[in-house]
Computed example of a mutant assay.
Amino acid sequence: MTAITKANSVIPTTWHSLAPLWQGKETEVQKGLPHTQLAPAWQLLLLGDGSPTRHLQLLTGEPTEVDVIDMSLIGVDLDGAPDLIQAVPEPRVRRQVWLRTASGQRLAYATSWWEASHVDEYLQNRSLPIWASLTRLRTELYRDVQGIYYGNCTALESAFEQTGPFWGRHYLFWHHGQPLTLIYEVFSPYLTKYLGAMQLDKTDIKSNRTC
């Protein structure tokens, strides 16, 4: 479902969430997952508190660029987002982007929700990745990963040109002890090119053990 702006461009009125086959909460995030469920390299990407755009740049050797596909004022609507959206003050703006290499390969999808009165302050250049925007402002942040998902999404299969299921997560950015934005991210299986398989089988785990 879409809405037509005054400029006759098409703006999405929904965002792409996974239909979970499995999901975990903060307890799973903190203790980590069995390697037969999620391989160590993928756990570093999904469960760590580092910048995904920076990680993607290091993995691919290319700058991580952003295609903004939606910037919508949603007001007080909960927008089908994780419950933590209620930590972000109203009214809210929803931002949707593709994260891709400079050569055009889509690597991730992200939706974020911001307090409308502050979004322009922190995203002065909306075409930059959030990490790049906040780094330029020397903003001190804490990335608080609260949930992880493994599931399907037809729209993301088409956009990534990859078959699901996909891994995703959601987290809050904290700034000066206050929630700044809620972010929901899904990563493309294309990243197996750099990170290896998403899961290890028991044979792989045994072969990695040393005396």
Rank of each mutant, 00 (worst) to 15 (best):
S9Q: 12
Y194R: 02
V76S: 13
L78P: 02
K25C: 00
L44C: 14
N8I: 07
S133H: 03
Q162S: 15
A159K: 10
Y142I: 13
T154I: 02
T13G: 08
G151Q: 05
D201L: 02
H35E: 13
S17V: 02
M71T: 04
G80V: 05
L56T: 06
P91E: 11
N8L: 14
T64A: 12
R95N: 12
L84T: 14
L45V: 09
T111W: 00
I183M: 15
T192W: 01
Q146A: 12
E115R: 13
P189C: 04
V93C: 14
I205F: 10
L59F: 06
T135P: 00
I11Q: 11
L191K: 07
Y184A: 07
P20M: 02
M198T: 15
G168D: 04
E121P: 00
V10P: 00
W131L: 02
Y150L: 15
T181M: 08
H35Q: 15
P12I: 07
R126A: 12
A110M: 11
S72H: 03
I74H: 03
T163R: 14
G48Y: 06
V93T: 15
R95G: 09
L200C: 10
R106H: 14
A81C: 08
D120V: 05
D79I: 00
T14M: 03
A108M: 15
L123E: 04
I69K: 08
L47Q: 05
V88G: 03
K193S: 14
Q105F: 04
W114H: 10
H175C: 11
Y142K: 09
N125C: 05
L78G: 01
Y184F: 11
L128G: 05
L107R: 07
I130D: 00
S207M: 11
T27S: 10
W174Q: 04
G196F: 00
A108H: 07
R126L: 14
A197D: 14
L107A: 06
V97F: 04
W42D: 12
W98M: 13
H55N: 07
H118V: 13
E65M: 08
I69V: 15
R169S: 09
Q105I: 13
G24Y: 00
I183C: 15
G32T: 04
T14Y: 03
L141H: 12
T181Y: 02
V93I: 14
Q23Y: 03
V88H: 00
Y184G: 09
Y142Q: 13
L195P: 10
E26A: 06
L200I: 08
E62V: 02
H16Q: 05
M1Y: 04
D77Q: 02
H170T: 01
Q37I: 12
G50F: 15
T210R: 12
A41M: 10
T5G: 02
G164I: 14
P82K: 10
P52I: 11
F173V: 03
V68H: 01
T27A: 08
V66K: 08
V29R: 01
H118C: 07
G147F: 02
L56C: 12
W22D: 01
